[in-house]
Structures are given as C-alpha cells and as structure tokens.
Design a protein around this nucleic acid. Structure first.
Lengths: 125, 125
DNA sequence: CGTACACTGAACCATATGGTTCAGTTACAA
DNA sequence: TTGTAACTGAACCATATGGTTCAGTGTACG
C-alpha cells in the first residue's frame, strides 16, 4: 500500500515535470478539449499529444471519453491531494530542521557570549 | 523569466518523481549525511547515490560541501514554494471547474423539475 | 611511508521519454 | 460512395534516466 502511494507519487510528479503537460492541465481547467484542439494549441502532432494525454490519464489526472470520432479530455477526479500532502509535510520538515539549526546556532552564540563575559573581565593589557 | 520558472518546476518535479530521491530529502530532514551514509541506507553504489544527490542539488533542493574526503549533504534553501504554489493554484482551478459543472448539472435538474411540474399537473389517465 | 577510505569521472547498459512519420481504421458529410 | 477529418498503433529517433563497473584522485591514519 505504501508502495502503491509511492508509485502514485512517482507517476504524478513525473507527469507534472513536463511544461506541456502542466499546460494541458491548466487548459482543461478552463474547458474540456479534444486531442486535436490540444495538439493545435501546443503545436505538436496528434500522436504526440495523444501520448501526453495518456501519461496524464495514467497518472489519474485526466479522463477521456471517445464519442464518435473525437476523444474528449477533461480533468480527472484526482485533486493532487497526496502530492500536496507530501510537499506540505516536506515544508514542515524543512522548517523544523532549520528551526533546530537556528537553536543550535543561538546556543553557540549564547555560549560564546558567556565565554566572552568570563574571559574579558579586566583585560590585563 | 517565465521560462526560468518553468524550468525550475520541470527540474524539481522531475527530482521528486523518484522514490529514492524523496527518501533522501526526508532523510536529510532528520540530519545531514555523507554520500556513503546515504548510499548505505538506500543500498546502492556511491556513484549511483552521487548522481541522485547531483540531481537534487541541480534542482536546488540539496546543497553539499566537501571537507577533507567526505562530502556532506544537507537540505537546500528552497522550500518548494513554487511547487506548492503551482499545486495549490491547480487545486483551486480544479475546484472552480467542478463547482461550475455542479452548477450546470443543478441547472439542468432545475430545468427538468420545472418541466416535470408543468407537464405532470393533472395527468390525464 | 603505506594502506585503506571517500569520493569522482568515464564508460557502459537497459529502459524511459518526448517527439516524429507512416499507415491504417472509423465516422461524419457531400 | 467517396472523401476527409479524428484518432490510433507501430516503428523509429535522439536524448535522458537510473543504475552499474572500473579506474582513478586525494585524504586520513597508523
């Protein structure tokens, strides 16, 4: 199950790692579109666009339905919950880590101050 | 500049699309580590781990410093702000899109109800 | 000094990715 | 029925990815 989640994260982060696919998602956020419309907009062949859509579909970010000749693409049911959660937990980890470093540095400064106070009283010039 | 941001997103989403690299980030969130320590933990060669670290470093997610023989890896300065922002804006887009669909569906239901009311008064059996 | 350790670069390998062209198949339209 | 438009699968291509081995280089330590 953890493996499944990891595979899911693998697939969707990989899907998001391409500027064209992020563009497709934004475009589909406005309105559903056919393969042809998407291919025109992103200036590539139908076959190329089909591949991108397949990647997004495999990641669960897009669903498609073919009626007649035309396949209509729309946003999938997934809202990137797990991806947002991973990033959020990373951000918290990051903050905690750097807060800790801050405390350590502060501790060192404190220590040094104390040390200085002990050693700088009445300097014997 | 937009291109630069897109390249940044490309690089960091790609960096996050590997389960080992996400593991490395989580590990470094606990404590800094050398290449050897990371390689041991993730059961791969030093060379292989070096490559992963390089990818993370290139994405700005990790910084390294070599002192003596050992290269110490720590979390980079980037907190995935842009990545979190992209995902968040996508989630809002997604919500807006589906709210709109809800309204459309509701509209249709409303229409149908009205129609039913108009047509089902005193059914002539 | 000699040895072992930590890393690094080059080369290699299999597979994946992002794109293309070409040759279909199916469906709408004149 | 004869196009033609929309898609699709197969094959191909260049490059990237995730890993390895091998052969170093530089550093610590006894």
């Amino acid at each position: 199950m953890v493996q499944l989640q990891q595979a899911r994260l693998d697939a969707s982060f990989a899907a998001l790692s391409d500027v064209t696919r992020r563009g497709i998602l934004e475009r589909l956020g406005q309105k559903d579109a056919s393969i042809t419309e998407l291919a025109d907009r992103f200036r590539m062949t139908l076959t190329g666009m089909k591949k991108h859509v397949s990647v997004l579909e495999h990641a669960g970010l897009v669903t498609t339905e073919k009626v007649g000749r035309v396949r209509t693409c729309r946003l999938g049911l997934r809202r990137l919950e797990q991806e947002a959660a991973w990033i959020e937990s990373y951000r918290q980890l990051w903050s905690a880590r750097f807060d800790e470093l801050d405390r350590i540095v502060e501790g060192l400064v404190q220590e040094k101050t104390t040390h200085d106070r002990n050693t700088t009283v009445s300097p014997t010039s």
